[in-house]
Amino acid sequence: MSRDNTLWFVIAAFNEGPMISEVVRGVAPHAQVVVVDDGSADDTGDQALAGGACVATHLVNRGQGAALQTGIDFALAQGAGHVVTFDADGQHDVAEALEMVARCRAEGLDAVLGSRFLGATVNMPFSRRLVIKAAVVFTRLTTGLNLTDAHNGLRVLSREAARKIRIRQDRMAHASEILSQIARLRLNWREHPVTITYSEYSLAKGQKISNSVRILEDMLFGARS
């Protein structure tokens, strides 16, 4: 199969040195990749480059939201037709991401959002399920979007959608922010079933429940306008 050069995977990575080159190698045969190394203390940037990704480096850590926006800007400047946001820790499945892109194109959608609750989860801890379900209810109430998942990092955006959505929440609250902008901009979106794998590696690094408090705080204090 040949690489689709109008398709860009944007991967925000923070201290993912042990995993990132494997993740990039999984994507690179199919699409272009930009990894935003968000002030990692390890060799994330070099590993990503070795795996075949373009690397944009944040000199200091600014959070996943900021990193995604950097990656999206980079991809748009390189002429991306579609943008995929993809996790660096191996939790997402490349084949499913490509299915989502195909669907986005075939149905002429602005956005396709991954849903682990339409799809599957592998070894998902109960506490994580609870927090995400709470986020889903919260998102439904605040945006009116009828979603089954929230805070899912696997998304496909058309070029137009990627241009219109501006992430101003630097840290993890960006996930809610993207959804609220999708609602406000009245983008044409669908959810698509995906599998999220909770490996030992991803769980050791993943979001702690305590961080949901920080997310709420970020949403309360708002972001720059």
Partner: peptide, 23 residues
Amino acid sequence: RRSGDVLTLLVRRLAIQQARFPE
């Protein structure tokens, strides 16, 4: 927060200007 936002803009701009491309 305001100074954090300014820092983010700077960091993001630099990251794009100095992006590295694979072999």
